[in-house]
């Protein structure tokens, strides 16, 4: 442990605080590079298609997990979709209150049957309905970084 702080005693029982110091540098990958570039530069959500297995992968994936073919066919699945499920989240990772609560959804994109998870915005939680049509709200071009958050959230249309 790198940082071992002074003993932290509760009711006379000894405990120490420490951490495992690890920082990672994750590459986007071969497929991810194309996916995030299209997100940033073209406002497009790209998937890859396996015609044999009739599966579309979003975010795009280099290979089909079912038949193990390498996937070369890219498809623009559009930035609208249908809400398949949703949640209104009141608790964060540290078990602390989230205020205001965060709305998240599973979105089926275009006609692809591919789903992605993202935030929902410009909607009251009481108005959320499974099946509602939603559309991506994009970050302004200059603010985009080639990240999934270049889509700020999805909103009902």
């Amino acid at each position: 442990m790198s940082k071992v702080k002074l003993p932290d005693s509760k009711a006379g029982k000894l405990a120490w605080k420490g951490d495992i110091p690890i920082t990672s540098r994750y590459t986007a990958g071969v497929a991810g590079q194309k996916f995030f570039q299209a997100l940033k530069e073209e406002e497009k959500i790209l998937g890859t298609v396996c015609n044999k297995c009739e599966v579309t992968y979003v975010p795009m994936k280099l290979f089909c997990e079912r038949c193990f073919a390498q996937l070369d066919e890219t498809v623009d699945v559009g930035d609208t979709g249908r809400l398949v499920s949703f949640s209104v989240v009141y608790i964060d990772l540290d078990s602390k209150k989230v205020n205001p609560p965060q709305i998240v959804g599973l979105i089926e994109l275009g006609n692809s049957q591919a789903r992605m998870v993202h935030r929902l915005g410009e909607v009251k939680s009481s108005d959320l309905r499974v099946g509602m049509k939603v559309k991506a709200v994009w970050e302004m071009p200059l603010g985009r970084e080639g990240k999934i958050t270049d889509i700020q959230y999805f909103k009902p249309v």
Partner: peptide, 25 residues
């Protein structure tokens, strides 16, 4: 996934809630 999901700040409650809602629906 470090690239496609973590920037959204997901937690386990999210995915359970999405699954439960889907099951109920």
């Amino acid at each position: 996934d470090h690239t496609t999901e973590r920037p959204l700040g997901p937690n386990l409650l999210w995915i359970f809630a999405l699954e439960m809602n889907r099951y109920m629906q």
